[in-house]
Nucleic acid binder design. Structure first.
Length: 644
RNA sequence: GCCGGCGUAGCUCAAUUGGCAGAGCAUGGGAUUUGUAAUCCCAAGGUUGAGGGUUCAAGCCCCUCCGCCGGCUCCA
């Protein structure tokens, strides 16, 4: 068998042995030794054995430690080392699964007692010893029967369950020293290659994520090829902690969630409310410009409305319970769509009127289980930047394209230029005909292609009423957040018997698009706080300027300056307290005010101002008029691409 | 909801084996009149998340509940 390895040359193997056999030859090349290989889009390791001679020539792409894929090998091996360490320290522990994940790895392990933070320290120490032992890994293919026998003897009940469900006749196992695990790989050559790792946390996790299954302990960790990368990652975790919107929200007095008011219910404090107002005003303005019509609808409605819409059938576990009043049942709304249906149904609609686009910043209430609430990102009452578009089928693609255009316009405005986009297609249980689903899915794809956007398909993950596009935005720290969603709905127009009159005077059913661009204002602001680290751009800063007086003598001049800014519509605060300038700067800096305007005797005499930016730049003796005209230019939503 | 951890002044955090609840910041008063990230002094501030129990004595130990944090699951 011939192996062609990109940039490394050609190698030969006669009998079916693992790739390790060619390792000595590669070592002779005195080049970096690959971590593993990519073979037909799959990651394989040195332990991999090509068993048939039918493939005479095999092309392999080497994967080096600089390649992102290499982390999969490292972390997967790290998770085995973790499992081995736990088994050595706690022999009665039973192993669940232990994959490599985005930022590290975990292993789910059953044990009679919970693992504590101190246990993690000991486990980590034992892991270091296993790394020092530099145990070579071995891969073996065995039959299912053999595997069942092996793991039965080891008492690994969870592994038995996994093996029974595997479709293949043969399964692979990896071993290192005395430790054996069911695993399809890929792995490193030996445990000694795991250089920099750290265990991070432990928490409960149901076996296979199912609530009636037993709970295992999930130990999380991360691993890198160098100490430096590990250090950088830990630094990033610190940075994430510093930017936590719950912490900044308190420090900057943006919002509060009070035990006495209720879990998951947000109170916007004046500064946070102001940011929200600025975004809302802009949002409304843009929507009106783009052919949407603004509506307002109530927060509760008769419960029967939700019977017609189908929410009581498929959404009830997310709804607050009903309220009885004068023998009528009312329901707090979990969604805005039924209300917009009635806006549509105010009169007989003609094909000429379509598309109709109704938008609303609609506050909805959804019951979320107590354990999942999280700051602004997961709440029980939130305001969607919602809209429902009613259109003809032949308008679907164009409408979807317009929505995408709008969503990207908004996201760019806030500096989000990278996205992950997913199309969710027809699930097993669905309404409407397969044909109309196919046409809608095609419309979604075409709309994305019209905007030159890459996407992935989530097969079968659509809601039962129609396919959808979900958009995840990437923030400055490289994290992804789901905000925007665009959903096609064949169900609700039918349930409410929506029609329009066509050119031929017949009745037709419109298609409805649900869409939220920012998602919910609560979540979006939470993401924004973290993205900006609380330092909002000038147009959104709750306090744009702070006037700092040097001494009490300068207060009247300071007041005059403040008035001029206020007259131009800027948001100004003054700090005329009898304190040192340093102190006032420190405070303004903590408040993340974009510009500190300093007035002292010198400025007063020259009739100027001195400005310090929150980045620390100092501009002395500016003419007020010059600074004002600069600010006027800056006081607009930021657009990275003016052509949008 | 489940598992583990946590809950002390407005905020951030101390309080040894169970032995008089304390500091910094913020707040109020006073002194000082200040030049680019914290001037000094004084004062006030608490039913230690709530309720119950053990004890001569509970912030600390036990039970129940509430909330928060990290996960599981779900999603805007």
């Amino acid at each position: 068998m011939k192996f062609k390895i990109k940039n490394l040359g050609e190698f030969y193997l006669n009998s079916p042995t693992s790739l390790k056999s060619i390792l000595p030859e590669i070592k002779k090349l005195k080049k970096e030794i690959p971590v593993g290989f990519k073979y037909q889009e799959e990651l394989i390791d040195w332990h991999y054995t090509f068993n048939s001679s039918s493939e005479k020539e095999v092309e392999l792409e080497p994967i080096f430690s600089s390649d992102l894929n290499s982390l999969e090998y490292l972390r997967h091996t790290a998770s085995h080392i973790l499992a081995q360490a736990v088994k050595e320290l706690f022999p009665s522990a039973k192993l669940g699964i232990g994959p490599a994940i985005e930022d590290g790895f975990y292993y789910d392990i059953y044990y009679e007692q919970p693992f504590k933070e101190e246990d993690l320290i000991n486990i980590e120490k034992r892991m270091k010893k296993i790394v020092e032992r530099n145990l070579p890994l071995e891969r073996k293919e065995i039959s299912k029967e053999e595997a069942l026998e092996l793991f039965k003897n080891l008492g690994e009940d969870f592994k038995l369950e996994l093996i029974k469900e595997l479709p293949e006749e043969k399964v692979t196992i990896y071993s290192q020293g005395d430790f054996v695990d069911l695993c399809k790989g890929p792995h490193l050559l030996s445990t000694g290659q795991v250089k920099a790792f750290k265990l991070l946390s432990v928490s409960g996790a149901y076996w296979r994520g199912k609530e009636n299954n037993p709970m295992l302990w999930r130990i999380y960790g991360t691993a890198f090829f160098s100490e430096e990368e590990l250090k950088n990652y830990l630094k990033r975790l610190e940075e994430i902690k510093k930017r936590d919107h719950r912490k900044l929200g308190k420090e900057l007095e943006l919002f509060t969630i009070e035990e006495d008011i209720g879990p998951g219910l947000v109170v916007w404090l004046p500064k946070g409310a102001l940011i929200r107002k600025l975004i809302e005003d802009f949002w409304k303005e843009v929507h009106l410009q783009r052919g949407y019509q603004l509506v307002y609808t109530p927060h509760i409605a008769l419960r029967d409305l939700w019977k017609i819409s189908g929410h009581l059938d498929f959404y009830i576990e997310n709804m607050f319970p009903s309220m009885e009043l004068e023998s009528k049942a009312y329901q707090l709304k979990p969604m805005n769509c039924p209300f917009h249906i009635y806006v549509y149904n105010q009169k007989r609609r003609s094909y000429r009127e379509l598309p109709l686009r109704f938008c609303e910043l609609g506050t909805v209430y959804r019951f979320e289980r107590s354990g999942v609430l999280h700051g602004l990102l997961r709440v029980r009452g939130f305001t969607q930047d919602d809209a429902h578009i009613f259109c003809r089928e032949d308008q679907l693609e164009e409408e979807l394209t317009r929505v995408l255009d709008l969503v990207i316009y908004f996201l760019k405005l806030f500096g989000f230029n990278e996205y992950k986009i997913f199309i969710s297609t027809r699930p097993e249980k669905f309404v409407g005909s397969p044909e109309i689903w196919d046409r809608a899915e095609l419309a979604l794809k075409k709309a994305l292609e019209n905007k030159n956007l890459n996407y992935e398909i989530d097969p079968g993950e659509g809601v039962f009423y129609g396919p959808k596009i979900d958009l995840k935005i990437k923030d400055v720290l490289g994290r992804f957040w789901q905000c925007s969603t665009i959903q096609v709905d064949f169900n609700i127009p039918q349930r409410f018997n929506l029609v329009y009159v066509g050119e031929d005077n017949q009745f037709y059913r419109p298609i409805m698009i649900h869409r939220a661009l920012l998602g919910s204002l609560e979540r979006f602001l939470g993401v924004l706080i973290e993205n900006y680290a609380g330092a909002f751009p000038f147009w959104l800063a709750p306090i744009q300027l702070k006037i700092l007086s040097l001494t009490d003598r300068n207060i009247p001049y300071g007041e005059k300056v403040a008035e001029k800014f206020k007259k131009e519509g800027f948001r100004v605060e003054t700090d005329f307290r009898n304190e040192k300038l340093n102190y006032k700067i420190k405070i303004a800096q903590q408040e993340k005010v974009p510009y500190m305007v300093i007035v002292g005797d010198k400025e007063e005499i020259q009739n100027t101002i001195s400005v310090r930016t929150r980045k620390g730049e100092v501009l002395n003796s500016l003419k007020l008029e010059d600074f004002l005209s600069q600010l006027k230019k800056e006081n607009k939503p930021y657009l990275s691409d003016e052509s949008l």
